[in-house]
């Protein structure tokens, strides 16, 4: 039976071994793009996938992205969820707080068009009902790998 110490060392080595590699050809040498996540009313499935994307299983940082905790530090706004009426003002505030050159990305079906929660008294549908959405990642919820691949494609100038 392994000692506790040996098992711990192995656990640390596992994490080094798992370090995900860049999916972009040749890696990324540009300044990292700041991503700000905003949930606006959903089952939270897409928000959970974004959390998974930030875990060690995906090469978010190796691909030139970093999660930021303030909209003032963000380049791209990643929105999850149908836009509930009570979250609409907050969405606007966060968007306005971001510096120039900002970009809006809808993550998941709800953020695009409201998904199953479109219509009715409680939501404004998705971003498509509020503005022209040029960048989106479909899925319900989308896989972290698909989100990352889409982000890399957006950075390289390819629209979804």
């Amino acid at each position: 039976m392994k000692s506790r110490t040996i098992s711990l060392v192995e656990a640390f080595l596992d994490v080094r071994r798992w370090r995900a590699r860049s999916v972009a050809s040749g890696g990324c040498t540009q300044l990292p793009i700041g991503l700000y996540f905003l949930e606006t009313g959903s089952c939270e499935g897409c928000a959970m996938e974004l959390e998974a994307l930030c875990g060690g299983a995906y090469a978010l940082e190796q691909n030139g992205f970093r999660r930021v905790l303030q909209p003032e530090d963000a380049d791209w706004l990643l929105v999850t969820g149908a836009v509930s009426r009570r979250c609409a003002e907050r969405l606007d505030q966060v968007w306005r707080a971001m510096p120039a050159g900002r970009s809006l990305i809808a993550i998941g079906r709800c953020a695009v068009d409201g998904g199953p929660f479109a219509g009715g008294y409680a939501t404004l549908g998705g971003l498509a009902g509020l503005t022209r959405v040029q960048r989106s990642v479909p899925g319900c919820p989308p896989e972290p790998a698909a989100i990352l691949a889409a982000l890399v494609a957006f950075r390289e100038g390819k629209a979804a």
């Binding site: 009313g41 149908a82 509930s84 979250c87 929660f117 009715g120």
Partner: peptide, 11 residues
């Protein structure tokens, strides 16, 4: 806790 209300019961 109700900011994300989406009207599920109505639907």
């Amino acid at each position: 806790a109700g900011l994300g209300h989406r009207g599920v019961t109505a639907q």
